[in-house]
Structures are given as structure tokens and as C-alpha cells.
Design a protein around this nucleic acid. Structure first.
Lengths: 160, 160
DNA sequence: TACTGATGATCAGTATACTGATTAATTATC
DNA sequence: GATAATTAATCAGTATACTGATCATCAGTA
């Protein structure tokens, strides 16, 4: 009899489910109203000011139709600004606002704590090994999802 | 600089994203219209005929409000039957239909293939280790989500 | 029987994720 | 410079997941 616990797909869903729950608990406990997805988008825009939505989506592996709603909500909260690009009138350039930057910095400890809680059942060695294996499996399957991770073209950045 | 790849929460989301994509590709390729969530529910009802929705939700770790819609769609496809329980008129007893059973058996090879594809980037040892670590992390975090996994009370079943 | 609390199911509302289509603008080609 | 192909963004629609509320029923108690 095939148990759910023998199916990596089930474990994937369950692990992600817990990850979201832990994130929400920590971030709300710290007094913020940010989802994991919104946090990742906000952080990516902070690191890459002026980025367009497609590139942002590739950076954090979101679907292009998902990013529209995420940016909508971040803009509505006053954490992001979306303005038309001057170089390409189809594109929107994203900038983090001052409030967005403050929020990002203030919420970061809670996000860190959530990451630790998610793997708190494992030893340090196990945590590192889990992450290595996830990274390896994800790398092999990257192109299989509609929202693969895309490297940003590293012109002018040296932190590779 | 904290990379996304150092955050287990990000890896969790990404791994689950790929799991769903691979599942859809395989199952649709085999000519079926079933989501991962619907497949798990169908399989659980097949193994536990007459189960109520809350117990089903606990078995596969779905939220109680999610299971309503999932069962709706499975019933609409003619794969499940939902009838009022005689013992408890609040509850719905779920039964798999003949077509549901046929579908379940016919789709299983595609589901198996999807599970293998999801971890195809890893060696056999790594696959087993990844699953062990996921199970361990999930067990430690089980109660943190609104939809924890619940053991079924094993009266009359010996496959524990 | 009336009351209280708990439980199974559902509903309204919100936020990811996706499919597939559309719109507007850019790039490539002739 | 007109045309075709591509691209950035959005939209409509569907399916998870969740929060919080409600309704009906059940169990326990006075």
C-alpha cells in the first residue's frame, strides 16, 4: 500500500503548507500584514530598483499573471511604486517606497525566525542537507514549471 | 546578502510549484483531468469508503473549507458520491463510484511517473534522504498549519 | 426539556498559481 | 515604412488554501 508519505509530491505540498503557516504566524505576530510572496517581491524590488515585472517574476519564480496581483497589492499598501518605463512603454518600472523599505527592514527578523522554525525539527547538518537536496531537485525541474527561475543579466553587478 | 536559495520557505514553494507542474503534465498527458489534490482525495476515499469530509481532510492534511470544493468537483465529475450519514445527519459519507475507481487505477502510473520525475535530479540515496528530511521537518511542524495531518482512529483496520 | 458547548459542513472573502486570450508596444524583416 | 513576430502586462476563468462566520446537528448536563 502506497502511503502519502512515500510520495514526494505530497511532502512538497505539506512542507509548503507549513512554511506559509509559520511565515504568517511570525509576521503577523510582529505586527505586519505581508504574505511570503509579497515579502519576496518587496525584497527583490529593493535589491533591484527599477526592475520590470517580468524580470521580477523570473527572479523569484512567480508566474507572470501572479505578479500583477502581487504588485497591485503592494502598491495599494504604499510599499511599491509602479510607473511606466521610459525606455519601453509596455513595461512598468518598480520602485520600493520609503515605507516599503522601512517595512522590509522591520519585518526581516520575523521572516528569519520563520525560516528557522520551519526546519527546527532537524539538526543543523540535516537542515543544510535538506536545503542542498531541495536546491538540486529544483534545479533539475526548473524548466518544468510555467514560472521558472531566471538569472538576471548581471551587467554592472559583481555579487555573483 | 541573503539569497532566496538560502531560505527554506522559498525552496518549499518552488519545490511544490514544480511538483504540481509535473503532476499536471503527466496526468494530462495520460488523458486525465485530475489535480494532485483531487487525486489524493480520490485515493483516500477509495481506501476508506464511507469516510466523512473532516476525517478525509485530516488524512491528507487539507483545510476543511478546501475539502468542500474538492469533493464538489469530484462529485461533479462522477468520481465520488456524497450522501448524508445515517448516524450523524451533519456529516456526509463519501463513496468512490465505479468510474472513480477505474479512473484512480488508470491514472496511477502517470502519478507514479510524476513522483519520479520530481526527484529525477537526485540519486536514489539522495531521494530517500530528501524524503526522510521532509518527513521529519513536516512532523515537527505538523500542528503549525490549520490543516494538520490526523491519524485515522484504527478501529477495525490493521494496516497500521 | 432547555441550555451549553462542540462538531460537520458550508459560505463569503482574500491571496496565490495556473491556462489561455488580449492589448499595446517593441523588434525584426522585408 | 509596412508587416510579422515577439514581448510586457493584463484579464477572465478555475483550483487550491486560508480566515472567520454561520447553520444544523449532536452530546452532555441541569
Amino acid at each position: 500500500m502506497k502511503d502519502n508519505n512515500d510520495m514526494p509530491g505530497h511532502l512538497a505540498r505539506r512542507f509548503q503548507q507549513i512554511a506559509v503557516a509559520v511565515f504568517h504566524a511570525e509576521v503577523e505576530g510582529a505586527g505586519f500584514d505581508l504574505t511570503p510572496v509579497q515579502y519576496a517581491a518587496l525584497a527583490a524590488v529593493s535589491t533591484n530598483p527599477g526592475i520590470d515585472q517580468i524580470t521580477l517574476a523570473g527572479l523569484i519564480a512567480y508566474d507572470r499573471t501572479t505578479i500583477t496581483g502581487v504588485v497591485d497589492r503592494l502598491a495599494q499598501k504604499g510599499l511599491l511604486e509602479r510607473r511606466a518605463s521610459s525606455r519601453d512603454r509596455r513595461a512598468r518600472e518598480l520602485q520600493i517606497t520609503e515605507e516599503g523599505q522601512k517595512t522590509l527592514e522591520a519585518v526581516s527578523p520575523a521572516v528569519e525566525t520563520a525560516q528557522e522554525l520551519l526546519v527546527r525539527g532537524l539538526t543543523g547538518d540535516e537542515q543544510r542537507e535538506l536545503m542542498r537536496l531541495l536546491r538540486k531537485a529544483i534545479a533539475a525541474g526548473n524548466e518544468l514549471s510555467r514560472a521558472p527561475l531566471r538569472e538576471i543579466s548581471t551587467e554592472g553587478s559583481r555579487n555573483g
